[in-house]
């Protein structure tokens, strides 16, 4: 029966086809024209994301490891997890080595099956990079990789993201037209526009319902690991 389902469904649809009526190309001008001068993109992204309860931290290529450390200490975070083997990990390990106390640096270095207990039970913060931002909607473009797994930006209660202002684009339409996506989508690509939230009870906003309670965007002009970048 199920064998035949596909043919039965497609057969009915094919039989009902009424030619190419309505198949005219769409006019995308209204989305194509939504653009912002470079100088306005980061401020717009920041305004929109702050309205969605994201926090911003201004830093430099030099200072971001200590800015992140201060924030974590203030938040009472016992630790922060980063992608194992990432440039970010190396940079933090180097910058934090020898400093007394402070958050412990954890590495996402095993398949999730072996890490679930730790990830759900004791990781207080996750730190990731991102591919850039979108000015139109105030979103971060996060593409998980083997080095920076998917759950790093989802399970820990605090998610910190390093953002290079030069990578803030216009909108999702412009992003998806880039060869990086148009020529083959990665297994997972995300837009993240704030901490997890719900309005399911009386339309009252509550944050941190399942995912991160805090989303902290660390703005690093020139990128977080420029010397190690490609």
């Amino acid at each position: 029966m199920r064998e035949g389902a596909r043919e039965a469904i497609l057969g009915r649809l094919r039989a009902a086809r009424r030619g190419e009526d309505g198949a005219a190309p769409s006019d995308f001008a209204v989305v194509r024209e939504k653009r912002w001068p470079e100088a306005e993109r980061l401020p717009r992204l920041r305004r929109l994301m702050e309205a969605a309860h994201a926090e911003f931290l201004e830093a430099t290529g030099e200072s971001w490891p200590s800015a992140v450390r201060d924030l974590l200490v203030e938040a009472g975070a016992r630790n922060v997890m980063v992608g194992a083997g990432s440039a970010v990990e190396a940079r933090l390990a180097e910058a934090w080595s020898g400093l007394p106390g402070g958050p412990e640096l954890l590495r996402y270095d095993r398949p999730v099956e072996e890490l679930k207990g730790v990830l759900f039970g004791s990781v207080d913060a996750g730190l990731t990079t991102c591919e850039g931002g979108l000015a139109e909607t105030g979103s971060l473009v996060v593409v998980p990789t083997p080095e920076e797994p998917r759950l790093l930006s989802l399970v820990p209660p605090i998610h910190l993201v390093l953002l290079d202002p030069a990578t803030v684009r216009d909108g999702l339409w412009q992003l998806l037209a880039e060869p990086r996506f148009a020529n083959g989508m990665p297994p997972n690509a995300l837009l993240i526009s704030g901490p997890s939230k719900t309005a399911d009870i009386e339309q009252t906003l509550a944050y941190g319902v399942h995912g991160p309670k805090r989303l902290v965007v660390v703005v690093v002009p020139g990128g977080a690991t420029p010397s190690r970048g490609s």
Binding site: A52, Y108, D109, R110, P111, V112, L115, S139, P144, T145, P146, P149, R150, L151, L172, M185, P186, P187, N188, A189, L190, L191, I192, S193, G194, P195, S196, K197, G211
Partner: peptide, 16 residues
């Protein structure tokens, strides 16, 4: 808050 674009299961090398 999230736009989740899924184009495949865990790929070789991915940890989750």
């Amino acid at each position: 808050t999230y736009v989740n674009m899924i184009s495949g299961p865990r790929s070789p090398g991915e940890k989750d």
